[in-house]
Amino acid sequence: MKTLKKYIDLPIREKLIFLEALFFVYAAKILLLILPFKFCVRILSTKKQNYENPEIEQLKQIKKAIHRTRWLSFWKNQCIVMSIASRWMLQRRHIHSLLSLGVAFDENKKLKAHAWLKTGEFGIVEKGGNFHELYNF
């Protein structure tokens, strides 16, 4: 109930961006469940287009909206889903982004994977940790 109250209290612009983020988060998860990853990469690759210089405030709103969807996602691999959804939101606004995939070892020497997305120097989904970048597009 408390989270519904928080949503109701949001300004209309933030509600709309949140709903867009929520739609793209679920669409990204469905895409990853249905298609092999190599096809997902092809779909996510950027086409040459004219990019606009983003306003930092706009990027902060997208980042906040994407991170607000975390409490509605019940799966483990949130970073890749959030990165894909963020990428689609940025592409709609003609903002260039770089989606990166990397790996690192945790304290138990187990391999863990992570995805992050940034536009310029601004991280929408943060890299965090000491991940070795394997692929970006």
Rank of each mutant, 00 (worst) to 15 (best):
Glu55Trp: 05
Phe39Glu: 10
Pro54Phe: 06
Arg13Met: 02
Tyr26Met: 09
Leu33Thr: 06
Leu59Gln: 01
Ser45Gln: 13
Leu16Lys: 13
Ile62Asp: 03
Phe37Ala: 11
Phe18Gln: 00
Pro54Val: 10
Ile56Tyr: 01
Leu33His: 10
Ile43Trp: 13
Leu59Asp: 04
Lys60Asp: 00
Leu35His: 00
Thr46Ser: 04
Ala28Met: 09
Phe37Arg: 08
Cys40Lys: 02
Gln49Ile: 10
Asn53Leu: 15
Gln58Ile: 12
Gln58Tyr: 07
Glu55Thr: 01
Phe23Cys: 12
Tyr26His: 13
Lys38Arg: 15
Lys15Phe: 08
Ser45Phe: 10
Phe23Trp: 11
Leu16Met: 05
Lys47Ile: 00
Arg42Val: 00
Lys63Thr: 11
Glu55Ile: 04
Ala28His: 09
Asn53Asp: 14
Ile62Pro: 01
Asn53His: 14
Ile17Ala: 13
Ile62Gly: 00
Ala27Gly: 02
Lys29Tyr: 15
Lys63Arg: 15
Tyr26Ile: 05
Leu31Ile: 05
Leu19Pro: 11
Arg13Ser: 10
Ile62Gln: 06
Arg13Glu: 07
Lys38Ala: 15
Val25Gln: 06
Arg42Gly: 13
Phe39Ile: 05
Ile56Phe: 13
Cys40Met: 05
Ile56Gly: 05
Leu19Val: 14
Tyr51Trp: 13
Glu55Gln: 10
Glu52Arg: 12
Lys38Gln: 15
Phe23Lys: 14
Ala21Pro: 04
Phe24Asp: 04
Thr46Lys: 10
Leu19Lys: 14
Glu20Phe: 03
Lys47Glu: 07
Leu44His: 05
Asn53Met: 12
Tyr26Trp: 03
Lys48Ser: 15
Asn50Thr: 10
Glu52Val: 08
Pro36His: 12
Glu20Lys: 00
Ile56Trp: 00
Phe23His: 11
Gln49Phe: 04
Glu55Ser: 11
Phe37Trp: 06
Gln58His: 12
Lys38Val: 14
Ile34Gly: 00
Glu14His: 03
Tyr26Asn: 03
Phe23Glu: 05
Arg42His: 10
Asn53Glu: 14
Val41Gln: 06
Glu55Val: 09
Ser45Asp: 12
Leu33Val: 02
Asn53Arg: 15
Ile17Tyr: 15
Glu52His: 07
Val41Glu: 08
Pro36Trp: 03
Gln58Phe: 11
Glu57Trp: 13
Ile34Met: 02
Phe39Pro: 02
Leu59Phe: 07
Arg13Tyr: 08
Arg42Leu: 11
Glu57Met: 13
Arg42Thr: 10
Gln58Pro: 00
Asn50Gly: 02
Gln58Met: 12
Ser45Glu: 14
Ile17Val: 15
Ala27Lys: 12
Glu14Ala: 07
Glu20Asn: 02
Tyr51Thr: 03
Asn50Trp: 09
Gln49Lys: 11
Leu32Glu: 04
Leu33Ala: 03
Lys60Cys: 08
Ala28Tyr: 07
